[in-house]
Design a protein around this nucleic acid. Structure first.
Lengths: 198, 198, 198, 198
DNA sequence: CATGAATGAGTCTTCATTCAT
DNA sequence: GATGAATGAAGACTCATTCAT
């Protein structure tokens, strides 16, 4: 629906431009070019609007991660790390302003739950993928996937904060790949007791 | 001053108990056992109060990191990673409810700047430390320290979210050490190609 | 028209279920299974809808009273009182939820007038009836009929309030008959000085 | 408190002048010469304000009735009826506009309960009084008192409606006395089978 | 200095009403 | 005629901030 989409976009714009506190229903409606009444025709209250916008964003990222995890099954660790990092950062940075704006929403009551759900989805996907690695084995998939996901969040935020040059972004991305690869290799070593000639 | 401290504590308590939106000046004053008027004697407005509380927390963490970085100068990478992780998590988890409550404040206009400053301080401290590592050399200290710090943030958040068992916390902490160590080793390797006689 | 009736019934139902404040045009239309637009085809505004429903109810009661008054002409006081009470309560309690729900409407601007009209109609009918009593004469028919009608309203309300047992309702009804009879006899006595030669 | 009283009075005035629907918190505050904020300092919401005003009025009437009932203990029925009617009408008509205005409030959710409580209080007082009548005995005090009270409500309303001449009011009052007396005598007769020397 | 009653701009939300389809 | 999305005025309520005591 045109109205719903307009409201959705307007919410992100206002959020990015004014912040969560000033992201009022009136302002969103104004920005969307509709009346407040219309906004309430589609969302029962401010919270649900914010939740919907956050949910859509989180879903977008989660789907990207899940797909990457599926395509990288039965691949070596290095490939997995590389694709995971790129899928995650790619989705997160696709709409930088939206991503940035939504951090505040994620903190509100209700947002926390959505974020937790998304994290869980992604963690499960990562765990499933790691379990099929051709060159490593993990005894504690849970912790491995949790740390893998968690470790990407901070750098992603850093990338979002300073709209640095694309070049710096590439460097960071490369380092994050290295970081995840190194981590996975480190903890898998602990397990792979008898890796033939190693 | 007793009053100031009371207000400070009250702010954190209300923040933790009710959330940012319900953390009103009246409620804080009530909780602190003083009048709103008194609160305004010490803070010109709500924002400055919130900023002060956030600032203090960030400073606490930054100082912990800086001290760890100083004590670990001229040590091997492994020690550095270990101490850094423990100093950072230790400070962050010292008052879990406060840390959690302040995430929302960090997102507000004004909070972002404080957070950026704290990050910068810690990044610089880490960079200075890394530069003195006895068993590694880094060509891009900036990126190395940025990623090191960033990579700790996500796991710290994860630890804060679920008040999991102390056992799981220890596992996570250990993994985070491994992660940072592995990363630093990985990127230092890239540089010391033929470090031969050093 | 089916639509009009549906709206009528829906209004009473919503009124009874949600109260006057929550009896919105949208809700009524929904309940009636028609669109708001259709509702406005038949009633120019919310007020007229409410007035129509109230009016119909009042008319129902007034007609019942008027008919009873006509059938009881040239009867003794006791019969008059008995029939009047039963006609009035019968009509009022026929749809208890509707009667109860409409009290609120009667208070709104506009409702007052309708109620006044209905009262007047009934009072006139009672006065006409009383004037033909075979065993009494009244010098102030106006006051007599006014008080007769008024005195029935309170008990009717009481009967409506607590959905008491049918037994208690019967007791109340009987007492109300006694009350009206006693009153009429009392004031007619004041007049009929010399029953003898009349 | 001056502010509270001002709000109280303003509420009644607005209620009388504009009706319940237009009796908004803003308008009341305006009329009272205070800000909306002040209103909410003393009443948590509109409903509680309305309830407080209604409650005060009902209490006033109930107290008047209760006192009359106490002073008329051990008196003949005629005196009881007379004093009861005068106490009730006197209290109800003391502030006619307030009484009239509050009818609408009594219908709102919450008002009903207050009214029921007041009715109960008065009914009990009446029952206690009737039980001490020197010239009558009642087997069903409950019904007797309920009907006595109920029968006064309608006429009181009638008196409130048309601000008729004081003369007409007196006539009505006298008739109401007669009505209550006649009723009480009628139902007590049913009981006093063999009142010896009477 | 402390107090806390008073302020009123600004929120969210509802709902009678309209009108293009 | 029927529909129901869109409108926007208006209401309840909150809360940062001030200032007389």
């Amino acid at each position: 629906m045109a109205t719903v989409d307009a409201i959705h976009m307007a919410t992100i714009q206002v959020l990015a431009a004014e912040g969560l506190a000033l992201c009022t229903t009136t302002r969103v409606a104004e920005r969307a070019g509709v009346s407040v009444g219309s906004l309430y025709q589609y969302y029962p209250n401010r919270r649900s609007l914010l939740a919907a916008v956050l949910g859509r964003h989180l879903d977008h990222v989660a789907v990207a991660v899940e797909q990457a995890c599926i395509t990288q099954r039965r691949k070596p660790i290095a490939d997995m790390a590389h694709e995971l990092v790129h899928a995650f950062l790619g989705a997160k940075l696709e709409h930088p302003s939206a991503s940035k704006a939504l951090y505040a929403v994620a903190e509100e009551h209700g947002g926390t739950i959505l974020v937790a759900h998304a994290k869980e989805r992604m963690q499960k996907a990562v765990a499933s993928m790691l379990d099929t690695a051709t060159d490593a084995r993990f005894d504690d998939l849970n912790t491995a996937s949790l740390l893998t996901m968690s470790a990407m969040i901070g750098p992603a935020q850093a990338l979002l904060e300073d709209d640095a040059s694309a070049k710096f972004a590439d460097v960071l991305r490369a380092h994050l790949c290295t970081l995840i690869q190194a981590y996975l290799r480190a903890i898998s070593l602990l397990v792979r007791t008898g890796k033939s000639t190693e």
